[in-house]
Amino acid sequence: MDGKPLPNLSSVALVEREEAPCAVEARDLRFSYGRKEVLRGISFTIGAGEVFAFLGPNASGKTTLFKILSTLLPAPQGSLTILGYDVARSSATLRRSLGVVFQNSAVDTKLSVVENLRYHGNLYGLWGVELRERIKVMLDLLGLSESADARVETLSGGYRRRVELAKALLHEPAILILDEPSSGLDPEARRDFFNYLLRLRASKSVTVVLTTHDMEEAERCDRVGVLHQGQLVAVGTAGDLKRSVGGDVVVIKAQRPEMLQMKLQQRFGLHVAIVDGRLRIEAPKGHLLVAEIVEAFGSEVESISFGRPTLEDVFTHLTGQRFSASSDDDWSL
């Protein structure tokens, strides 16, 4: 283990960790704001060095989960260990090994990039030559060297997010936790940011846990956990999840969807769902099915399309709802 601050585990715990190198282990997490149950029994494990995304629409509970993982909310019901620490008991020690990037900017815009990093380093007990060197490494790694002395308020959104990242990684955490890291960034800055993230993972062997509602971002992670109304409905690689849908996805727009749904079910014996006013069929050979449907019911079809399943289709497959159509009432606070 290359000199990164490892938790002081007892030898027994260390053996357990080596058998199953697990960065985060959650069993049956539950959390409520008052009477509103926001997390309803979530279990998962995240391996050391993994890049893991929690994908979910608003109000799916992902921000609450982020806050619990980053020790901002009190330990919930159920058990949660991070790096072998029980979060309920040792959050102070644990915090040293966590790097947290918030959705809202947590840098001081009146300070320069270096001043922000120095401030943050001091809070984690870093100073002097060591701190100066780490700041330099971070600036190089994140392409910030030239803006080192610029005040953060003069930087663009993409740069600011990189400053956040530099700040969160300065004390060399074993786990990096990010809440919607790409929100508010344009597509280019988004890709850019993610490339930096992957590069950091490679060079610092840090475990990355992030929340997102961006499909493209989720696809680039090692594994994805799909959150829906406070429950984890699926966990796996993006590829596995898509394969679970079962073939292709055919979507039909029709003037009278219910009528066509009945006819299609009678004729082909398929399960036909109506999602957001459109007919949706999952079938192994989509292109053949499209031809057959058009042949038989062409006059009732306004438009028809088929494609390989995306993560959005996975979500619909699992929940029966469209991803973006989820309500905006924000449980996450």
């Binding site: 915090r95 809202n104 943050h120 984690y124 700040k167």
Partner: peptide
């Protein structure tokens, strides 16, 4: 928030 997640 950034201060609150620090070991302080």
């Amino acid at each position: 928030q950034g201060v609150l997640v620090a070991p302080i």
